[in-house]
């Protein structure tokens, strides 16, 4: 059982029959997600290894394994923004320790979006998950 927000997305995806409907939904989520302020789109927040530009800005409260994890993200590609929104639902509100326990492959697989996780794909979902886990691990150890 993942976060409530992610379960809600998974429920919606259960009703979406083909790739076009799934992508339509991802794109809607991408359009709806608030944009990051240009001032925070800096090298420190940029996630390398993505074909489009991606930024992840951590918003973590507290210290140690029980710190509450959250982040904001953005991309210049709409589908990638939608994927960031899904990752946000997957991880936001978890503790730093819980973030590290999430099986992203399996969870995205429930949405039929796990193809984005293959290492050969350059959309950067893998790199984003890597960044999210690094941020959580860093805070958990603090």
């Amino acid at each position: 059982m993942a976060t409530e927000a992610f379960e809600e997305i998974a429920e919606t995806f259960d009703f979406l029959e083909d790739w076009e409907e799934r992508y339509r939904h991802v794109i809607e989520m991408g359009k709806a997600m608030p944009a990051l302020d240009d001032a925070v789109k800096v090298p420190a927040t940029k996630v390398e290894g993505c074909a489009s530009q991606v930024w992840i800005l951590p918003r973590i409260e507290g210290e140690g394994a029980d710190a509450t994890f959250d982040f904001e993200g953005d991309s210049d590609a709409i589908i990638v923004r939608g994927l960031i929104a899904i990752l946000h639902a997957l991880y936001a509100g978890l503790t730093a320790a819980e973030v590290l326990k999430v099986d992203a492959q399996a969870e995205l697989g429930r949405l039929g979006l796990d193809e984005h996780l293959s290492s050969q794909r350059s959309n950067g979902v893998r790199a984003m998950i890597g960044r999210i886990r690094d941020l959580a691990a860093e805070r958990a150890a603090a």
Binding site: Y23, A77, V80
Partner: peptide
């Protein structure tokens, strides 16, 4: 439309191979 990668992703779903970048 946001980005050529968005376009090429949708084209790929239709079996159409183009380059983006």
């Amino acid at each position: 439309a946001g980005h050529p990668h968005d376009i090429s992703t949708v084209l790929d779903k239709r079996g159409i191979a183009v380059r983006a970048g």
